[in-house]
Design a protein around this nucleic acid. Structure first.
Lengths: 198, 198
DNA sequence: ACCTGAACACCGTTCAAGT
DNA sequence: ACCTGAACACCGTTCAAGT
């Protein structure tokens, strides 16, 4: 029924794809949020989750898993945007949560840090995908992000001294490098800071 | 011209508010992204940025600033969602970036960690606001997030062992507590992990 | 019972026509 | 020149009518 589903999935588009009126979809799903939730869960079926890991390897495996999840969502920008405000609840999403929790515990994290950390990690993945996705979706090279780049490029060092100081560092690294660093940093922080603030 | 601007801001809504047709707005802005960008920057004018800080105080000031920014966006969910895929470039946003960079440097962070870190921090703020905002926007208490809660509540410990183990921790803490912890964790990670992976 | 055409209430954006 | 009414090409959702 939902085989390909790439790019922007709307009720009407899917309905015409299935040679029917838009009303027919409401027999199967209650609203668009539910449709996107189902789509996400089907997509997550293609993610292969790691088994139990030894403490020494848990962190690296976790970074890989989170990068995989991010890249999965980057391929479906419209989905990523709705997932951010969706709290998905399908079986495959629960499996993903369970996997991440397991790896955090394997690393030796406390119960609360693992429980609170999984939210941060998955939210970062989703937000990154939503951000990247919509950006690359706007086909024109001129608009959107290009303006921030030039704004930072042209920001006067007098008005924005720290931007002036770090201008070149702000555009350094590939997307892949930055994503891995981000997850590594998140994991380090989650592991280190407890609910009392360290 | 744009004095209040709360809740969902659309071109047509704003146009009728100004007693004119929707076409008139395109004299002032090129598209909706630009409108939302301008709205955000006006909103950011109400954020009071901290001055230079001594190293020992920088972290705490930064957490406060990031919480302020998040709460600002939480009040305007529709804005938060578009800001995520917008890369704002207004003067007040640049001032915010500059402030965060300054505080990160004051903490003693390396140039690259500060430059890469500011993205993570501001993205987390925006994503959190977008997530929370849309959730509270859906007025019905039944849908959306409630289902994940029950899904986690009912998830069998056999199929999802780690969720079973941490079930109670996952709903612990107030939103405020969790937000402060998240930023504290992010900052710790950003400060600790360098681009070589520590 | 189960499905769906047509309608309702919205969107962003464009462009020709009006002042 | 500057503004804008009306139109175009879309949306999600509902509901009465059809099979």
């Amino acid at each position: 029924m939902r085989q390909d589903g790439l790019e922007r999935v709307t009720m009407r588009r899917l309905a015409t794809e299935l040679d029917t009126g838009p009303a027919s979809l409401y027999v199967y799903v209650a609203n668009m949020a539910e449709l996107h939730g189902a789509l996400l869960d089907e997509l997550l079926g293609g993610l292969n989750l790691p088994g139990p890991a030894r403490p020494a390897k848990a962190r690296a495996i976790l970074v890989d898993l989170l990068c995989d999840y991010t890249n999965l969502l980057v391929g479906h920008p419209s989905l990523a945007r709705s997932v951010l405000s969706l709290w998905p609840s399908g079986p495959n999403y629960l499996r993903l949560i369970d996997s991440v929790l397991g790896l955090l515990l394997a690393e030796g994290l406390g119960r609360r840090q693992a429980a609170w950390g999984v939210d941060v990690l998955l939210q970062h993945a989703t937000a990154t995908a939503a951000e990247q996705g919509t950006r690359s979706e706007s086909v024109e090279a001129d608009g959107e992000g290009y303006r921030l780049a030039t704004a930072i490029e042209e920001a006067s060092a007098a008005e924005y001294p720290n931007i002036g100081l770090l201008r070149d560092e702000m555009f350094s690294g590939t997307g892949h490098q930055r994503l891995r660093w981000q997850f590594a940093a998140l994991l380090e922080g989650i592991a280190t800071v407890d609910d009392a603030g360290r």
